[in-house]
């Protein structure tokens, strides 16, 4: 079971935070196929957010094929999210790039801005 933490000041829409945290739990193997997500009632009682926000997030997860709603039973995980292994070649290349960025005098925020800009270019329109 996951527990959602809502950050009101993150600038990220609340339902997106629930989607992201669910995916994070799937990537980290904290949620596995067959696990039940908390009911909307359970989530809103703990977080004081609107129930429709939770349902919107669950619909989004369902649309992406990650969970399925079973009438009267709840919402269940259908498949896990393949995490990128820590030792993948992509990670190695990214580390080398970060090393070069640092050597070139870029600060953490510069690198983050650059990375986000490239992400936006290559993954434009993709769901987060």
């Amino acid at each position: 079971m996951v527990e959602y933490r809502i950050d009101r000041h993150s600038g990220v829409a609340t339902y997106v935070q629930i989607v992201q945290q669910t995916k994070q739990a799937l990537r980290l193997d904290l949620l596995r196929p067959g696990d039940r997500l908390p009911t909307a009632r359970e989530v809103v009682e703990a977080t004081a957010i609107n129930p429709n926000t939770v349902l919107k997030a669950y619909r989004e997860l369902e649309r992406e094929g990650l969970v399925e709603a079973r009438r009267g039973l709840g919402t269940f995980v259908r498949r896990s999210l393949g995490a990128t292994p820590a030792d993948s070649p992509l990670r190695g290349e990214l580390e080398q790039w970060a090393d070069r960025a640092r050597a070139a005098g870029l600060e953490r925020d510069d690198v983050a801005a650059l990375f986000t800009a490239v992400l936006d270019t290559y993954f434009e329109g993709d769901p987060t």
């Binding site: 609340t14 009911t39 909307a40 977080t47 957010i49 609107n50 129930p51």
Partner: peptide, 24 residues
């Protein structure tokens, strides 16, 4: 209150503090 809303109850609440209502 939100748990009550999840059961389908319509809720109308007044407030002059807007920020605390935004997510609910």
């Amino acid at each position: 209150l939100m748990a009550q809303a999840a059961r389908g109850t319509t809720i109308v609440m007044s407030s002059h503090v807007v920020a605390e209502l935004e997510d609910s």
